[in-house]
């Protein structure tokens, strides 16, 4: 089973191996800086369980789990 960004616990980090898919969503994520080899960290989940706050390249962004599932990780 591949480990994705959606599988991380708060304060866990990983390195991006690839982004699944070639559609608009994967392009948008890449443009934001979710590039190969980049380190990403889960900061927290929203109180209702979704979305999740991600720290990448020095900024914070909220993604839904369905989107985070696209981001396949290698362990740090």
């Amino acid at each position: 089973m591949e480990r994705t960004l959606a599988d991380l616990q708060p304060n866990e980090a990983g390195r991006i191996r690839c982004i699944a898919g070639t559609d608009g969503l994967s392009q948008r994520l890449a443009e934001l800086g979710f590039t190969l080899g980049q380190t990403v960290r889960v900061v927290r989940f929203a109180p209702l369980g979704d979305p999740m706050q991600i720290h990448i390249r020095g900024f914070n962004i909220a993604l839904r789990r369905t989107e985070a599932r696209r981001i396949v990780l290698d362990p740090l």
Binding site: L29, F59, N60
Partner: peptide
């Protein structure tokens, strides 16, 4: 086409 929810904090 579904648009991703990308919300900068």
């Amino acid at each position: 086409e579904p648009v991703p929810f990308l919300l900068e904090l």
